[in-house]
Design a protein around this nucleic acid. Sequence first.
DNA 1: CAGTCGCGCCCGTGTGCATA
DNA 2: TATGCACACGGGCGCGACTG
Length: 483
Amino acid sequence: KRFWYHIHHPEWRAALDTDALAYMKIGQEIGELARQTFPEGVLLPFSPTDKALSATQAALAGDAPVLFEASFAAEGLQARCDILERNADGTWTLIEVKSGVRVKEPDHIEDVAFQAIVLRAAGLRIRDYRLMHLDKEYAHEGGNYDPVRIFQSTDITGMVLETIPRLAADLDAVRALAAQNDAPDFQPNTYCRDCDFREKCHKDVPSGGLWQLPGINVNSVRKLASQGLRVLDDVTSAEQLSPTNRLAYRVISGKQDFTDPELIKQLDRLPGPIGFVDFEAIDPALPRFVGHHPYERVPFQWSLHVIPDADSAQQPEWRDYLHTDRSQDPRIAFAATLWEAVQDCNSLVFYSDYEVTTLKMLRDAGVPYGRELHEKIKAVGYDLFKAIKGKTYWNSFNGSYSIKNVLPAVNPAVSYNDLNVKNGAVAVQVYEEYLDPATSPERRAAIIDDLRTYCQLDTYAMLALYQGFRAAVPGWAPAAVRD
DNA sequence: CAGTCGCGCCCGTGTGCATA
DNA sequence: TATGCACACGGGCGCGACTG
């Protein structure tokens, strides 16, 4: 259905968010770097389409050894290739560039197989298929990246040839789908959550669909639909659902929130002083610091709110660190300052295990205090997300356990709305901007303020969650009515 | 007595969700 | 884009019971 909308109503597509734009930018950057591997390559225009196609035909007829962004059209299909390399015998090698660190099946293979179908139909003979992706072993030496060594090239000819017949068979169905006048009648499912046509597509869909249950999967929704269960009202007994979906179902259908009494007991018993901790980090595809590898995580900021004990009426104490020296590896000072700051904490509260994973990475990279920090968080850490997921559910969570949904439900007074940086993904982009040599000192100062404000609110929000859950009625309680 | 069927358990794989 | 975790699902396999 999404595909049909793409063809017939592209104008309904939601605008790309900053997140998506950032990934596209990375993709382009990687693409340009990959082209540098072939200094003799010729970059072809890719719009408008007729110009792109004619330029490609002219280049094929010429003698350029390597073509970038060659465009093809055949049998109603269009494809563009990152890199085409001419072989001595008149055949071609098709090279697809991906910005990840490994071949991802089946996505990458199908992507190339589709191009292969179009190119073959257009009369090209392709000898082999390769996928270029980043090499995790590459260590940045400062200065410009070495385009030859930063990439790994994998021969995927076998997998592509295997995939072509299956994909070609599917294409008939796809053509028929594209040609039909009305949108196909697919039932809403979990994957609708991040579809860029959701707003238009779902405007007439009645609420109450099973796919709204947090954690339910595509297959379960289909299976239940085949038994005639389409919406929550069709369910007559919670036993019809898998154990993980039962709590949310009972809460929604009974309009009663459930707070796990065990959760409150655990929160009451956390030994003080209790620290609420949050990190910000970048995972840059292209390493920013000497010795770093593609996608190696670089934590650059932490925030910590500390209360002396569970029942303390005192104001929480706030400490933080933000790395501002662009010439130094942020991880060193990050770890050293954090280790100092958490010394007196007997509990460390965080939301999802991102913090633990990040410290594990510091440990494995041999960063001083990385091992100590990882051991400490393993010993005294408390994952608030893990503690509530599937065990506590309120109607006001609206189908998600993300802190963006849970926080306003538990404590509506704490809000990210007035911030310049409202979420982690933006924090990452803003820090990349900070690192950029072209950024002005004034902008840098503003970025520092925004990042500190954001990260501070993140840990304050966790403290608010902690207090909010402790104050909640354990067990079943009437859902709060909010408008 | 031997072959087969069915049930339950284990484990690998896939999916969903969270974080940045 | 990466990472990790937890759970659902399905295939493989073992064992007990039933049947010809």
